[in-house]
């Protein structure tokens, strides 16, 4: 990718979430999942969304991706309306690609074919070209040797990395990650973080990253947005002014510790509220 292309990608992908409210209606009881939530995410920003489990973070992601409708408010991508009250469900498209909590590589396709899938179905590349580009991008991510393997044959770390490659091959404006490293041990996680940062430094794609791991949020993000427990609203925003590229030595530095502490009190308070409310988590 040339520098000119990179700078254009850097200027797109601004998400603006304005007064979004989502009311679920399971069995006739209204549940307020997201309440009048507003957030501006700049183009090329790594925005970490932090909050206790089941607080409604994923509801926000689902509205952006076009999986669920919103009830009030609007969401814009680079000024264009994705969804609002008149059209509550955004259309799904490869400009906003999701990486799922439990991984959603197609188990019946090899890693190479999984990565080639997006350009192939959109018709932007021929099948052979898509395969070639997929192999190239997998090799770049250190997965060249396993391109012909099925997801069931590789480690979860490799699978997750391939899933991010599958998203990036489409040149998305926004990468939406829903607690992608939740089930991983701390050591694998730190390797995954570095790989993600390395990919981010190359592409500068806007990242909307949901997590409940504070250290992850501070290590990866430009900002960590702490959400309240259900109904979901922005509680505080922690700005992470640590220069990139970052590596894992940062984890033991003073400035990192200070930022984690700053966010911790806010998150702890919400976690306690969530626990006491004892409500069942929403999807």
């Amino acid at each position: 990718m040339s520098t000119a292309e990179m700078s254009t990608t850097a200027r797109t992908g601004a998400i603006s979430i304005r007064n979004v409210t989502k009311i679920y209606d399971p069995e006739g009881v209204n549940v307020l999942a997201v309440d009048d939530c507003s957030l501006e995410i700049g183009a090329g920003e790594v925005c970490m969304i932090v909050g206790p489990s089941g607080c409604g973070k994923t509801t926000l992601l689902n509205a952006i991706a076009g999986f669920h409708s919103l009830t009030f408010g609007e969401i814009r991508l680079d000024g264009e309306v994705l969804c609002d009250e008149r059209r509550p469900l955004a259309s799904q498209g490869a400009d906003r690609v999701v990486v799922f909590q439990n991984g959603a590589l197609f188990p019946w396709k090899t890693l190479g074919d999984n990565v080639a899938y997006g350009p192939m179905v959109q018709g932007t590349l021929s099948k052979a070209e898509a395969r070639e580009k997929a192999r190239h991008m997998l090799a770049e991510a250190g997965l060249g040797d396993v391109a012909e393997k099925y997801p069931g044959e590789v480690s979860s770390g490799m699978a997750r990395r391939a899933e991010i490659v599958r998203a990036l091959i489409n040149d998305p404006k926004v990468l939406l990650l829903d607690e992608p490293y939740r089930a991983m041990d701390a050591l694998t996680k730190s390797i995954m973080h570095e790989a993600l940062l390395e990919m981010y430094d190359r592409t500068k794609v806007t990242i909307f990253f949901i997590t409940h791991d504070l250290e992850e949020a501070i290590f990866l993000g430009d900002r960590a947005v702490v959400m309240t427990t259900r109904p979901c609203r922005v509680k505080t925003i922690v700005n992470v002014d640590i220069p990139r590229p970052r590596d894992y030595h940062l984890l033991s530095s003073e400035e990192f510790r200070v930022l984690v502490e700053e966010a911790k009190d806010a998150v702890h308070e919400e976690a306690l509220k969530a626990f006491e409310a004892g409500e069942r988590e929403l999807a």
Partner: peptide, 20 residues
């Protein structure tokens, strides 16, 4: 999530049928 993944990667209905 496979349906959703296929959807956000830009598949139409027929492609989802065939590939998912």
């Amino acid at each position: 999530s496979y349906f959703r993944a296929a959807g956000c990667l830009g598949s139409n209905r027929w492609q989802i049928f065939r590939h998912v």
